[in-house]
Amino acid sequence: MIAWRTGADTGRNGLQVVLVLLLLLALGLGTGVSQALADPPGGSAEDGQALFQRKCAACHSIGQGDMLGPDLKGVTTRRDSDWVARFLAAPDQVLASGDPIATELLSKYNIKMPNLGLTETEVTALIAYLGTQAGSAPEPQPTLAPMAILSEGDKTAGNDLFTGTARFQNGGPPCVACHTTADIGFLGGGALGPDLTGAHAKLGDAMAVWPETVPPMKAIYQDKPLTQKEKDDLLALFQSASTAQGQPWVVGQLALLAVAGSALLMGLAHLVWWRRLRGVRRAMVARRTSPFRDILGG
């Protein structure tokens, strides 16, 4: 009566139950997937907000004061929106062109904004969002947490923290779980997050505020923040890290090791159970039914 029976005794009733339940599961999944496909990121202020949280919030606040970069409250009224669009799309190029505003910003904040590789739609969305956050005039706000990045950390301690040999005081996972650098030997660090080789040259000390502010790290570290000492140690490590690219091909090495290990296990199974398949009858049947039985004299 039930579909879990094999072959001929599979009944219709049970099959129907199974199909209905599978349909329900599929429906649940389908709803979710279609929802995801229904709203691709567009240029709306709402998309801009999500984008801001993901890509900008590490260095900029809105109305909370300056962080590594300026407070962006009212930036769309403060500056020409065309300029904002150009700067968002390619801050490095704007700065290189000798743009006076960009040069002034650099001398004030002393950090070059990295090129985030935003698309045109993303820039539109961000500007739309920043527009809704303009308020009246930017009120003078006290600077948020003073960015006391002294970078007098100990790079050996930083290395231990990065590789997980020393644990973070508040229980956050070690960097190596998701990141690698050129300095980590043999199989390297994790590949879930970006390779941090040369990251400090690009991003500067801003890296220190990332764990608690940038998704997906934010969800993990917001309740387990790094201490200032730990950040300093890590920054010291990143500053001194080599920038030579070119990790060995780890996936290939791992795949080879996996195949070798698997072969070893198969060999072991063969050794342990070598008698298991040596029945008396099978050999006799094989002899009787072999097309070569006349030659073999079975």
Binding site: T163, G164, V176, L254, L257, A258, V259, A260, G261, L265
Partner: peptide
């Protein structure tokens, strides 16, 4: 916590997966 132990564990896991 030590990279050597991490690598060993991961390789054993991969061999078993294979």
């Amino acid at each position: 916590a030590a990279p050597v132990r991490l690598y060993t564990l991961e390789v054993i896991g991969l061999a078993l997966s294979a």
